[in-house]
Design a protein around this nucleic acid. Structure first.
Lengths: 136, 136
DNA sequence: TATGCACTCTGTAGCAACTACAGGGTCAAG
DNA sequence: CTTGACCCTGTAGTTGCTACAGAGTGCATA
């Protein structure tokens, strides 16, 4: 399949596919006589793996490690688990941080009663961290 | 105060302060005879406003609008409220998305029982989106 | 007085993970 | 034979910083 088909099949931008090839995340495919990239099923499933991992928030470098693992089926799976667990912890930390932030924002937004900027509680609150209830 | 003091006073990296000046978020301060930047209380409070807003996740462009508002105290405060409310909604959306993602990751991680990569449930799950319970 | 060290200056390049061109070539249909 | 959809390479832009390199300044100590 040509790059446009692969793009549609995996929901990946064409430029992104070429980018992944450039950084060595996808192997360079064969070329047609017209120098068009020509992909097979292996490319497609590798790209799906990458996209899915990106959707789950893994970094490119994490994905590189995960791909290395899956390329070598005899290797110990502990590292995959370690990567995924560490990532899960990061996501949980991010959720916790955003939740504090949301509460703070909700407090700030809730105080606006209209009027002019000089009396605006939103602007006032942004200028004065000491009014915050949460660390952030 | 010199840039190092302002940096310590506001918890902002020196390079970041110069960056804010370059993009026009902070006004260029006076210079000493030795061409050192010399800041006053107004710079300090403006920078605190910027840092606090950044900590709350506002983009530079949003902060620019908020600063424009606070520079003109006669203007209507509705826009500040609109910016903050829109941002709050974005944060809430992000939390919701990360929560789905966390659940999915927890499901994936929970299935690893060790062994070799060929049998790894983590790697398998990453390669196959159709096993997911949530959209992401 | 020399010299060492902390501080400051400008300007540029790098980071992640793409995205968006510009300026060309290829191919099938009408 | 030309139109339009597709593909190619290479480079530059995005956000919000951060990290130098290479130079000048200011103050205390040997």
């Amino acid at each position: 399949m040509k790059i446009g088909e692969l793009s549609r099949a995996t929901g990946t931008n064409i430029e992104t596919i070429r980018y992944y090839e450039r950084i060595g995340l996808l192997p360079a495919p064969d070329r047609t006589a017209a120098n068009y990239r020509s992909y097979g099923a292996a490319h497609r499933s590798r790209l799906s793996f990458v996209r899915h991992s990106r959707e789950l928030g893994f970094t490119i470098e994490e994905i590189r490690s995960l791909l290395d693992l899956s390329d070598d089926p005899a290797r110990d799976c502990g590292e995959a688990d370690r990567i995924a667990t560490a990532h899960l912890e990061q996501v949980e930390a991010k959720i916790a941080q955003l939740t504090l932030l949301r509460d703070e924002l909700a407090r700030i937004v809730g105080r606006c009663r209209g009027g002019v900027a000089a009396d605006c509680r939103v602007i006032e609150a942004l200028g004065d961290h000491s009014r915050c209830e949460n660390p952030h």
